[in-house]
Design a protein around this nucleic acid. Structure first.
Length: 281
DNA sequence: ATGGCAGAAGCATTCTGA
Protein backbone atom coordinates (compact mmCIF):
# COMPACT_ATOMS: atom_id res chain seq x y z
CA UNK A 1 0.00 0.00 0.00
CA UNK A 2 1.52 3.29 -1.18
CA UNK A 3 0.83 6.23 1.13
CA UNK A 4 1.96 9.73 0.15
CA UNK A 5 1.97 13.23 1.60
CA UNK A 6 2.35 16.40 -0.48
CA UNK A 7 2.12 20.08 0.32
CA UNK A 8 0.86 21.21 -3.09
CA UNK A 9 0.60 24.96 -2.39
CA UNK A 10 -2.84 25.33 -4.00
CA UNK A 11 -4.66 22.24 -5.25
CA UNK A 12 -6.26 24.20 -8.13
CA UNK A 13 -3.06 25.75 -9.47
CA UNK A 14 -1.22 22.41 -9.22
CA UNK A 15 -4.05 20.13 -10.39
CA UNK A 16 -2.64 18.92 -13.72
CA UNK A 17 0.78 18.25 -12.15
CA UNK A 18 -0.85 16.26 -9.36
CA UNK A 19 -2.88 14.16 -11.81
CA UNK A 20 0.26 13.49 -13.86
CA UNK A 21 2.10 12.36 -10.74
CA UNK A 22 -0.75 10.08 -9.67
CA UNK A 23 -0.78 8.48 -13.13
CA UNK A 24 2.94 7.77 -12.82
CA UNK A 25 3.03 6.56 -9.23
CA UNK A 26 -0.50 5.27 -8.54
CA UNK A 27 -0.60 5.76 -4.75
CA UNK A 28 -3.40 4.24 -2.68
CA UNK A 29 -3.66 7.21 -0.33
CA UNK A 30 -2.49 10.81 -0.66
CA UNK A 31 -2.62 13.46 2.04
CA UNK A 32 -2.55 17.02 0.67
CA UNK A 33 -1.68 20.20 2.54
CA UNK A 34 -2.11 23.87 1.60
CA UNK A 35 -5.03 23.17 -0.69
CA UNK A 36 -6.02 26.85 -0.32
CA UNK A 37 -9.63 26.33 -1.31
CA UNK A 38 -13.02 26.14 0.37
CA UNK A 39 -14.68 22.73 0.29
CA UNK A 40 -17.33 23.63 -2.31
CA UNK A 41 -14.65 24.69 -4.79
CA UNK A 42 -12.31 21.71 -4.32
CA UNK A 43 -11.76 19.89 -7.65
CA UNK A 44 -13.14 16.54 -6.50
CA UNK A 45 -14.10 15.05 -9.89
CA UNK A 46 -10.60 14.58 -11.38
CA UNK A 47 -9.68 12.40 -8.38
CA UNK A 48 -12.96 10.47 -8.37
CA UNK A 49 -12.42 9.65 -12.05
CA UNK A 50 -9.16 7.96 -11.02
CA UNK A 51 -10.96 5.86 -8.43
CA UNK A 52 -10.35 7.90 -5.28
CA UNK A 53 -12.76 8.98 -2.62
CA UNK A 54 -12.08 12.55 -1.51
CA UNK A 55 -12.29 14.03 1.99
CA UNK A 56 -11.64 17.76 2.29
CA UNK A 57 -11.24 20.31 5.06
CA UNK A 58 -10.44 23.68 3.57
CA UNK A 59 -10.73 27.43 3.96
CA UNK A 60 -10.33 30.51 1.82
CA UNK A 61 -6.81 31.36 0.60
CA UNK A 62 -4.83 29.70 3.37
CA UNK A 63 -4.13 26.26 4.84
CA UNK A 64 -6.52 23.45 3.93
CA UNK A 65 -5.97 19.68 4.02
CA UNK A 66 -7.45 16.72 2.15
CA UNK A 67 -7.22 12.93 2.03
CA UNK A 68 -7.84 10.99 -1.16
CA UNK A 69 -7.99 7.21 -0.94
CA UNK A 70 -8.73 4.23 -3.16
CA UNK A 71 -9.75 2.32 -0.05
CA UNK A 72 -12.83 3.38 1.87
CA UNK A 73 -12.08 6.04 4.47
CA UNK A 74 -14.05 5.56 7.65
CA UNK A 75 -14.59 7.70 10.73
CA UNK A 76 -13.44 10.84 8.94
CA UNK A 77 -12.81 13.66 11.43
CA UNK A 78 -12.02 17.29 10.71
CA UNK A 79 -9.80 19.13 13.17
CA UNK A 80 -8.80 18.17 16.71
CA UNK A 81 -11.18 16.39 19.03
CA UNK A 82 -10.89 14.78 22.43
CA UNK A 83 -7.67 16.60 23.33
CA UNK A 84 -7.22 16.52 27.08
CA UNK A 85 -6.42 19.95 28.60
CA UNK A 86 -7.22 21.66 25.30
CA UNK A 87 -10.97 21.27 25.12
CA UNK A 88 -11.74 24.77 26.42
CA UNK A 89 -9.57 26.67 23.93
CA UNK A 90 -9.63 24.19 21.06
CA UNK A 91 -11.57 26.75 19.00
CA UNK A 92 -8.46 28.76 18.23
CA UNK A 93 -7.00 25.66 16.59
CA UNK A 94 -10.18 24.89 14.65
CA UNK A 95 -10.27 28.30 12.95
CA UNK A 96 -7.33 27.24 10.79
CA UNK A 97 -8.00 24.08 8.78
CA UNK A 98 -4.83 22.09 9.40
CA UNK A 99 -5.82 18.54 10.38
CA UNK A 100 -8.01 15.80 8.94
CA UNK A 101 -7.99 12.15 9.95
CA UNK A 102 -9.63 8.90 8.89
CA UNK A 103 -9.41 5.16 9.45
CA UNK A 104 -8.25 3.31 6.33
CA UNK A 105 -7.45 -0.39 6.27
CA UNK A 106 -7.48 -0.43 10.07
CA UNK A 107 -4.90 2.35 10.35
CA UNK A 108 -5.57 5.83 11.67
CA UNK A 109 -4.39 8.20 8.93
CA UNK A 110 -3.67 11.67 10.36
CA UNK A 111 -2.89 14.45 7.89
CA UNK A 112 -1.41 17.64 9.37
CA UNK A 113 -0.27 21.03 8.19
CA UNK A 114 1.68 22.34 11.16
CA UNK A 115 1.85 26.16 11.42
CA UNK A 116 5.10 27.69 10.22
CA UNK A 117 5.50 30.04 13.17
CA UNK A 118 7.23 32.84 11.26
CA UNK A 119 9.98 33.57 13.84
CA UNK A 120 10.74 32.64 17.42
CA UNK A 121 9.60 36.03 18.76
CA UNK A 122 6.32 35.98 16.83
CA UNK A 123 2.88 35.38 18.30
CA UNK A 124 2.55 32.83 15.49
CA UNK A 125 5.39 30.88 17.07
CA UNK A 126 3.43 30.53 20.31
CA UNK A 127 0.51 29.31 18.22
CA UNK A 128 2.76 26.74 16.53
CA UNK A 129 4.04 25.32 19.82
CA UNK A 130 0.55 25.25 21.33
CA UNK A 131 -0.74 23.54 18.18
CA UNK A 132 1.95 20.86 18.45
CA UNK A 133 1.13 20.38 22.14
CA UNK A 134 -2.53 19.88 21.22
CA UNK A 135 -1.45 17.37 18.56
CA UNK A 136 0.50 15.48 21.24
CA UNK A 137 -2.63 15.32 23.39
CA UNK A 138 -4.67 14.18 20.37
CA UNK A 139 -2.20 11.33 19.79
CA UNK A 140 -2.24 10.40 23.48
CA UNK A 141 -5.97 9.77 23.10
CA UNK A 142 -5.49 7.70 19.94
CA UNK A 143 -2.80 5.65 21.66
CA UNK A 144 -5.18 4.90 24.55
CA UNK A 145 -7.59 3.41 21.98
CA UNK A 146 -4.80 1.15 20.72
CA UNK A 147 -4.88 2.66 17.23
CA UNK A 148 -2.18 1.91 14.68
CA UNK A 149 -1.17 5.33 13.41
CA UNK A 150 0.26 6.88 10.28
CA UNK A 151 0.86 10.58 10.98
CA UNK A 152 2.05 12.60 8.01
CA UNK A 153 2.20 16.03 6.50
CA UNK A 154 4.10 19.30 6.44
CA UNK A 155 5.54 19.68 9.96
CA UNK A 156 7.54 22.83 9.32
CA UNK A 157 10.25 21.37 11.57
CA UNK A 158 13.60 19.88 10.57
CA UNK A 159 14.01 17.08 13.14
CA UNK A 160 17.82 17.28 13.13
CA UNK A 161 20.69 19.23 11.59
CA UNK A 162 20.96 16.46 8.98
CA UNK A 163 17.68 17.79 7.63
CA UNK A 164 18.97 21.28 6.74
CA UNK A 165 21.31 22.09 3.86
CA UNK A 166 23.22 24.67 5.94
CA UNK A 167 22.53 23.87 9.62
CA UNK A 168 25.02 26.44 10.93
CA UNK A 169 23.34 29.27 9.07
CA UNK A 170 19.89 28.37 10.40
CA UNK A 171 20.86 27.06 13.86
CA UNK A 172 18.28 27.90 16.50
CA UNK A 173 16.01 29.67 14.01
CA UNK A 174 12.51 28.90 12.81
CA UNK A 175 12.00 25.23 11.84
CA UNK A 176 15.36 24.38 13.46
CA UNK A 177 15.00 25.48 17.10
CA UNK A 178 15.23 23.20 20.12
CA UNK A 179 11.79 24.41 21.23
CA UNK A 180 10.21 23.13 18.03
CA UNK A 181 12.20 19.89 18.02
CA UNK A 182 11.19 19.22 21.62
CA UNK A 183 7.54 19.91 20.80
CA UNK A 184 7.77 17.53 17.83
CA UNK A 185 9.44 14.83 19.93
CA UNK A 186 6.66 15.22 22.48
CA UNK A 187 4.20 14.37 19.70
CA UNK A 188 6.21 11.34 18.62
CA UNK A 189 7.31 10.13 22.06
CA UNK A 190 8.47 6.50 21.84
CA UNK A 191 5.47 5.44 19.84
CA UNK A 192 6.07 6.91 16.36
CA UNK A 193 9.00 6.38 13.99
CA UNK A 194 10.35 8.56 11.20
CA UNK A 195 9.88 6.37 8.10
CA UNK A 196 12.67 8.13 6.20
CA UNK A 197 15.27 7.50 8.91
CA UNK A 198 14.55 3.77 9.03
CA UNK A 199 16.26 3.53 5.64
CA UNK A 200 18.60 6.53 5.64
CA UNK A 201 20.51 6.87 8.89
CA UNK A 202 22.89 9.60 7.74
CA UNK A 203 21.62 10.83 4.40
CA UNK A 204 20.39 14.36 3.76
CA UNK A 205 17.42 14.58 1.41
CA UNK A 206 15.15 17.58 1.08
CA UNK A 207 11.37 17.83 0.76
CA UNK A 208 11.18 21.63 0.48
CA UNK A 209 13.21 24.21 -1.40
CA UNK A 210 12.52 27.96 -1.09
CA UNK A 211 11.20 29.53 -4.29
CA UNK A 212 13.79 32.27 -3.87
CA UNK A 213 17.51 32.40 -4.54
CA UNK A 214 17.54 29.49 -7.01
CA UNK A 215 17.30 27.18 -4.01
CA UNK A 216 16.21 24.11 -5.98
CA UNK A 217 18.85 24.53 -8.68
CA UNK A 218 21.47 24.90 -5.94
CA UNK A 219 19.84 22.02 -3.98
CA UNK A 220 19.55 24.18 -0.86
CA UNK A 221 16.61 22.50 0.84
CA UNK A 222 15.13 21.25 4.07
CA UNK A 223 13.42 18.00 5.09
CA UNK A 224 10.27 19.23 6.81
CA UNK A 225 7.63 16.87 5.35
CA UNK A 226 7.44 13.59 7.23
CA UNK A 227 5.62 10.27 7.51
CA UNK A 228 5.60 8.88 11.04
CA UNK A 229 4.26 5.39 11.73
CA UNK A 230 3.50 3.41 14.87
CA UNK A 231 6.52 1.35 15.80
CA UNK A 232 4.32 -1.75 15.57
CA UNK A 233 4.11 -1.07 11.81
CA UNK A 234 7.85 -0.70 11.26
CA UNK A 235 8.31 -4.34 10.19
CA UNK A 236 5.70 -3.74 7.45
CA UNK A 237 7.57 -0.75 6.02
CA UNK A 238 9.20 -1.56 2.67
CA UNK A 239 10.40 1.87 1.56
CA UNK A 240 10.28 5.62 2.10
CA UNK A 241 11.17 7.99 -0.72
CA UNK A 242 11.07 11.72 -1.37
CA UNK A 243 10.22 12.22 -5.04
CA UNK A 244 11.82 15.51 -6.06
CA UNK A 245 10.84 15.16 -9.73
CA UNK A 246 7.65 17.31 -9.47
CA UNK A 247 9.83 20.15 -8.14
CA UNK A 248 11.30 20.36 -11.65
CA UNK A 249 7.93 21.13 -13.24
CA UNK A 250 7.02 24.57 -14.54
CA UNK A 251 5.35 26.48 -11.69
CA UNK A 252 5.93 23.69 -9.15
CA UNK A 253 4.92 23.46 -5.54
CA UNK A 254 7.86 24.39 -3.33
CA UNK A 255 7.41 20.97 -1.62
CA UNK A 256 8.04 17.49 -3.02
CA UNK A 257 5.85 14.46 -2.24
CA UNK A 258 7.03 11.91 0.32
CA UNK A 259 5.81 8.33 0.04
CA UNK A 260 6.02 5.06 1.93
CA UNK A 261 5.21 1.52 0.88
CA UNK A 262 3.52 -0.33 3.71
CA UNK A 263 3.19 -4.08 3.22
CA UNK A 264 -0.21 -4.95 4.65
CA UNK A 265 -0.69 -7.95 2.36
CA UNK A 266 0.92 -10.41 4.75
CA UNK A 267 -1.77 -9.58 7.31
CA UNK A 268 -4.36 -10.79 4.79
CA UNK A 269 -2.19 -13.78 3.80
CA UNK A 270 -2.07 -14.89 7.43
CA UNK A 271 -5.82 -14.50 7.61
CA UNK A 272 -6.43 -16.64 4.52
CA UNK A 273 -3.94 -19.27 5.69
CA UNK A 274 -6.06 -19.75 8.78
CA UNK A 275 -9.16 -20.00 6.59
CA UNK A 276 -7.55 -22.68 4.39
CA UNK A 277 -6.49 -24.71 7.41
CA UNK A 278 -9.99 -24.46 8.79
CA UNK A 279 -11.58 -25.82 5.61
CA UNK A 280 -9.01 -28.62 5.28
CA UNK A 281 -9.97 -29.89 8.68
C1' DA B 1 20.09 42.70 7.76
C1' DT B 2 17.03 42.56 3.84
C1' DG B 3 14.86 40.73 -0.02
C1' DG B 4 14.28 37.47 -3.17
C1' DC B 5 9.48 34.08 -5.16
C1' DA B 6 4.76 32.39 -5.30
C1' DG B 7 -0.58 32.09 -4.51
C1' DA B 8 -5.11 34.23 -3.32
C1' DA B 9 -7.98 37.99 -3.41
C1' DG B 10 -9.20 41.10 -6.69
C1' DC B 11 -7.54 44.97 -9.76
C1' DA B 12 -3.12 47.84 -6.83
C1' DT B 13 -1.44 46.06 -3.60
C1' DT B 14 -1.48 43.45 0.69
C1' DC B 15 -1.19 39.26 3.39
C1' DT B 16 0.92 34.91 4.10
C1' DG B 17 4.14 31.41 3.61
C1' DA B 18 9.04 29.01 4.99
Amino acid sequence: MLIATWNVNSIRTRLSQIIDWINQVNPDIICFQETKVMDDNFPIEPFEKLGYSVEVYGQKSYNGVAIISKIKAENVKKGFYGCKDFDQNIGIFLDQKRLISAEINGIKIINVYVPNGSSLVSEKFRYKINWLNCLASFLDEQEKKGQLICLMGDFNVAPSDLDIHDPDKYAGGIMASEIERNALNNVLKERLIDSFRIFEKNKSDWSWWDYRNNSYELNKGWRIDHIYISKELSSKLKSCVIDSSPRENIRPSDHAPVMIDLNLNDINVDFFDIEDDFFEI
